[in-house]
Amino acid sequence: MSARGLSMSFGAFSAVRNVDLDVHHARVHALIGPNGAGKTTVFNLLTKFLTPTGGTITFMGTDITRLPPDRVARMGLVRSFQISAVFPHLTVLDNVRVALQRPNGLATQFWRPLSALDSLNERADRLIAAVGLSEARNAMAADLSYGRKRVLEIATTLALDPKVLLLDEPMAGMGGEDVAVVAGIIRNVARDRAVLMVEHNLKVVADICDHVTVLQRGEILAEGDYRTVSEDPRVRAAYMGTEEA
């Protein structure tokens, strides 16, 4: 996936200016920057939850700049949200099954009983086990701890078997142990797909990301591997006093 000259203005305020971004297969790419830099907005643009005011986005050779968000998701460009997005009054199992329903052709049958969805259980359970939620399988998503909601969201995202995975602060608000678990999951899934993630925890970025793009006030400030970027004086200046630099 690549974006060229991506721009977004809200009225007179330009939140994203002229951003070029290339996301590659089998690579974890981090998008970092101070609060309000425009990271979430970039995510919204790439997944078409917002339509860019300028620039183009191509995904596997197709121009997706004007496609609706659900189309883009069906093509394999799937996101998670900064504010955890689960279906609160569904169980963990049902959350994952909802994600599995469409790709398995079980979304439109209004005449079949719910037990028709049991054929998805095996795959759903595997995904739930992969993120360590097996014993919470039948719990309501609303009753999970914050960190567990985040991993549930990752499991539902993975259920779509996406080609590109966009994760908006997947580890925000998690305890140290959970962070390590999720970092492991991300590394693992990135072996055969592309991952773009927003992350504030620079240690995580250093550990698992192959490539880093730094955004500041809607513009790209620096780009490269973690070491190069972290030694860049402009990046140090941008982070000084604002973040956990």
Binding site: F49, F81, A85, V86, F87, P88, H89, L90, D94, R97, V98, Q101, R102, L106, A107, T108, Q109, F110, W111, R112, P113, L114, A116, L117
Partner: peptide, 16 residues
Amino acid sequence: SPFGMILKSIRENEQR
């Protein structure tokens, strides 16, 4: 039904 399940999920969180 499977369809009803999707309706429910839309009501719970349309963006998702």
